[in-house]
């Protein structure tokens, strides 16, 4: 696997498969965004360094309720589009009158993207065992493009942080991270996440995190 930095319009290759962040003209594949090109065998994709979250079916998101209408909650999902959570997609069957009692404006939920209707109507659901209403802990915003870095290869980075700090952490696809634990540890996790954000794509992230945690623990 090779990595290199590409700009929009850069010719990635001919007769290869283009993944995310590429476009095709005839049999040539070009980069559509400014980012890092990753090549695996015959496939190439470009990973953006910045950018807004574009909802995909099946993603788990952290949303904040902004509005309640007669049959759904409207959620801010940190993207150009609103998320719609219908009454029928709530955990259990409830009456319309009880909507604002169950989930108030300003409350935070982990929800799953059920489907996306064209043009970009994002329907959410809570019918998944990972979905829940968040009433404890802290939610922090991180740049959407940094999510894969925070998670790490096969979850290595996030698991390391969880183990070292004893916190419950949930990284949502839309660039929000929920952290639950003792106050001090929450502060430390936020600190670690901010460090990762600045690091961009350096390779020895896990070493740096371990150092940072040890420094904090000595205090």
């Amino acid at each position: 696997m090779s990595k290199d930095i590409v700009i929009p319009g850069y010719l990635l290759g001919e007769n290869i498969n283009g993944g995310d962040g590429t476009f095709r003209d005839g049999n040539k594949v070009y980069s559509a965004i400014y980012g890092v090109a990753k090549r695996v065998n015959n496939k190439v994709e470009v990973i953006s360094l910045k950018g807004k979250y574009n909802p995909k079916k099946g993603d788990l998101l952290i949303g904040i309720v902004t509005e309640i209408t007669f049959s759904m909650w409207i959620l801010d999902i940190n993207s150009p589009y609103d998320g719609f959570l219908y009454l029928s997609d709530y955990f259990k069957k409830i009456e319309k009158e009880d909507m604002s009692k169950e989930l108030r404006i300003g409350e935070t939920v982990v929800a799953k993207v059920k489907e996306i209707e064209t043009p970009m109507r994002v329907n959410l659901t809570l019918n998944d065992n990972r979905c829940k209403v968040i009433r404890t802990g802290v939610v922090v915003d991180v740049p959407y493009a940094k999510i894969p870095v925070i998670i790490g290869k096969g979850g290595s980075t996030i698991n390391l942080i969880k183990k070292e700090t004893n916190c419950d952490i949930f990284v949502a696809q839309n660039g929000r991270v929920w952290i639950n634990g003792s106050d001090e540890m929450i502060k430390l996790v936020i600190n670690i996440i901010k460090t990762i954000e600045k690091e961009e794509c350096s390779d020895n992230i896990s070493e740096k995190i371990t150092k940072l945690i040890q420094k904090e623990k000595k205090r």
Partner: peptide
């Protein structure tokens, strides 16, 4: 625009 990560065909 490129810096914002917006998909574009070229500069």
């Amino acid at each position: 625009l490129a810096d914002a990560g917006i998909p574009m065909k070229n500069l």
